[in-house]
């Protein structure tokens, strides 16, 4: 099956400093893919670059194809139809994405008028249907309310409604629940998965929270310092992470039940993009690093039919993990 979106060799540099260093990722129709990684790993930049949302001084190279058509360097008119129409995006801080002096109805109808061939009462009816769909009670009356009259969780629901206005094929959710309390986070994740199932929409869930991604995605890509270092089906990644960084991330997560053990912290910090180490960017923090790690950047290579890892020590790392597990 041809992928819905395929990204190849996507790189981004801000005034000569590379922040994204060759990302390859393909996404099928209706598929949910998670992107995890720490701050600065390039999770958000990947999609901002793909949709042409970065400031002009960013140098973007590589290729992003939607249904085979190249998006990078596409004319503005075509991008306008893609953004919001085919690919919609929601962000971490929903309150700042809404205009505080306009009613929800005005803002929803604006999105509908842009992307759908509707007019007059049909727009209003559709706006009400969308609010109903995302679970805002008493939708008809609440359309006339302003953003400050809603709670944080409701605002995120409204953002989801706006994102759905153009009937997108792909929803990019960038840390959609990070600012929300645990019980409200559960509501929003539930809503996203229901909507996705009903509309057959693909989703990219960007999060620093491994648990959130594991529970809501079919496939997960782990990013480190501007590259994907491991990609695998979610259940496999968490049961059997291969890349030492992916292992480290999972080991650093305190367990919620069972015996408590000392956390296996990854030493050191993320490298400064302006002073990237030679070879593998993770090598200076890696317990398994050997001399060849500093020589060349490892490429993302398959280790099973649906798994890829960018690590020349992948075999050793896997053995080390199994060794620990066997004890």
């Amino acid at each position: 099956m041809a992928p819905l979106v395929s990204i190849a060799g996507l790189s981004v540099a801000f005034s000569g400093v590379p922040v994204l260093r060759g990302v390859d990722l393909a996404l099928g129709k209706g598929e949910a893919v998670g992107l995890v990684g720490e701050s600065g790993s390039g999770k958000s930049v990947t999609w901002l670059a793909a949709l042409g949302l970065l400031p002009r001084h960013a140098q973007v190279t590589g290729s992003v194809r939607l249904d085979g058509r190249e998006l990078l360097g596409a004319p503005a008119g075509e991008l306008d139809r893609v953004r919001g129409g085919r690919i919609a995006m929601i962000f971490q801080d929903p309150a700042s994405a809404l205009n505080p002096v306009l009613t929800i109805r005005k803002q929803l109808c604006e999105a509908l008028a842009l992307h759908r061939d509707l007019s007059g009462n049909a727009v209003k009816a559709e706006a009400r249907r969308l609010l109903d769909l995302v679970g805002i009670p008493d939708a008809a009356r609440r359309l006339e309310a302003y953003p400050h009259e809603f709670s944080g969780g409701q605002i995120q629901r409204i953002m989801i409604a706006m994102a759905l206005a153009g009937n997108p094929d792909l929803l990019i959710a960038d840390e959609p629940t990070t600012a929300l309390d645990a019980t409200i986070q559960a509501q929003i994740l539930e809503l996203l998965s229901t909507v996705r199932r009903e509309l057959g929409m693909a989703m990219v869930l960007i999060s620093h929270d491994l648990g959130v991604v594991a529970e809501n995605c079919d496939r997960v890509a782990v990013m480190y310092a501007g590259r994907i270092v491991e990609e695998a089906p979610s259940n496999q990644l968490f049961a059997d992470p291969v890349h030492p960084y992916a292992q480290g991330l999972i080991g650093a997560l305190p367990p919620l039940d069972g015996p408590r053990r000392r956390l296996t912290a990854i030493p050191g910090t993320v490298p400064d993009p302006a002073h990237m180490p030679d070879g593998c960017a993770f090598a200076p923090r890696c317990a398994l690093a050997a001399e060849p790690c500093g020589l060349a950047v490892p490429s993302l290579a398959p280790i099973a039919n649906d798994r890829t890892v960018a690590c020349i020590r992948a075999e050793a790392s896997r053995r080390a993990l199994l060794g620990i597990a066997a004890e």
């Binding site: 559960a186 998965s193 929270d209 491994l210 648990g211 594991a214 529970e215 968490f238």
Partner: peptide, 11 residues
């Protein structure tokens, strides 16, 4: 507890 996502558990 149930809202706290856990790797390896589906929702």
């Amino acid at each position: 507890v149930s809202a706290s996502p856990a790797p390896g558990r589906r929702s």
